[in-house]
Deep mutational scan, measured.
Amino acid sequence: SQTQRTQDENEARRIAEEWKRRGYDVEVRNRNGHWEVTWD
């Protein structure tokens, strides 16, 4: 799996939607004030 971090929730949601469209299983988490998008 791969993880991308961002400070911006909207960006995190956009990234998550992009990977979901490509057929990946995606998880979005808030950790210590930043957002992590993990896909595999």
Rank of each mutant, 00 (worst) to 15 (best):
E36N: 02
E17V: 03
Q7G: 09
R14S: 08
N10I: 10
R29C: 10
D8Q: 05
E11V: 07
W19T: 05
G23W: 01
D40Q: 15
Q7M: 13
R5F: 12
T38I: 14
E27V: 14
Q7F: 12
R29H: 13
V26M: 02
V37Y: 01
S1H: 12
E27D: 08
R22W: 06
R22D: 08
K20F: 12
N32I: 04
G23L: 01
R29N: 09
T3F: 10
T6E: 06
E27K: 10
T6W: 09
Q4W: 09
W39D: 01
T38M: 10
T38S: 12
D8I: 04
E17D: 12
R21C: 15
S1E: 10
E11Q: 07
W35K: 00
D8T: 12
E27M: 09
T3S: 10
W39Q: 03
A12K: 01
Q2M: 11
T38D: 04
T38N: 07
R29Y: 08
R14L: 08
W35F: 05
R22Y: 06
D40L: 14
W35I: 02
R14K: 10
S1Y: 12
T6R: 04
W39S: 04
D25M: 10
T3N: 06
E36C: 10
N10Q: 13
Q7Y: 11
E11R: 05
W39H: 07
R31G: 06
R29L: 10
S1W: 14
G23H: 03
N30G: 06
D8P: 02
A16G: 06
T38W: 11
V28S: 01
V28F: 03
D25Q: 11
A12Y: 01
N32T: 03
R21D: 15
T6M: 09
R14D: 05
D40V: 15
V37F: 02
R5L: 11
R13S: 03
E11D: 07
H34D: 08
E9G: 04
W35E: 00
V28L: 07
V28M: 05
R14T: 07
T38F: 13
N30E: 14
T3Q: 08
Q2E: 07
N10S: 13
Q7D: 12
N30W: 15
E11T: 09
V37W: 01
I15V: 07
R22P: 01
N30Q: 14
Q4L: 14
T38G: 03
R14Y: 05
K20D: 07
H34P: 01
W19L: 15
T38A: 09
G33W: 01
D25R: 11
T3D: 05
V28C: 08
D40Y: 15
V26P: 04
R21G: 14
T38V: 13
A12L: 03
D25I: 12
S1G: 12
E36G: 01
A16S: 04
E18Q: 08
W19F: 13
A12R: 02
S1K: 14
G33P: 01
E18H: 10
T3H: 09
R31C: 15
I15E: 03
N30R: 12
R22V: 05
Q7A: 12
E36W: 07
W19H: 09
E18K: 08
E11K: 04
V37G: 01
D8F: 07
Q2K: 13
R31K: 11
R13A: 05
E36Y: 10
H34T: 14
R5V: 14
V37P: 01
D40P: 09
E11Y: 05
D25S: 09
N32G: 13
N32H: 07
I15G: 00
E36F: 07
N30T: 08
N32V: 04
N10R: 11
H34I: 15
R5I: 15
Q7P: 10
Q2L: 10
R31T: 12
V26I: 04
D25W: 12
V28A: 02
D25V: 10
R5W: 13
R13H: 09
V28T: 03
S1V: 12
V37E: 01
R29P: 00
R14V: 08
Q7W: 11
R31S: 10
R22A: 11
R5A: 09
V37L: 05
Y24V: 06
R29E: 07
V26Q: 00
Q2W: 08
E27L: 09
R21M: 10
E27N: 08
R21Q: 14
E36R: 01
E17L: 05
R31D: 09
E11W: 06
T6A: 14
V28Y: 03
A12D: 00
E17R: 05
E27S: 11
A16Y: 08
N30Y: 15
S1L: 13
H34S: 11
V26N: 01
G33R: 02
E11L: 08
A12W: 02
Q4V: 15
V37N: 01
V37I: 10
R5Q: 11
D8K: 04
R22K: 13
Q4H: 15
G33V: 01
R13V: 07
T38E: 07
V26R: 00
E18A: 06
E27Y: 07
G33D: 07
R14E: 06
E18M: 10
R21V: 10
D40A: 14
R29Q: 10
D40R: 15
Q7T: 13
W35C: 02
D40S: 15
Y24I: 06
W39M: 09
R29W: 05
W35D: 00
E36K: 01
N30F: 15
R29F: 09
W19N: 05
W39T: 07
D25K: 11
Y24F: 12
Q2A: 09
T6L: 11
E17N: 07
R29T: 13
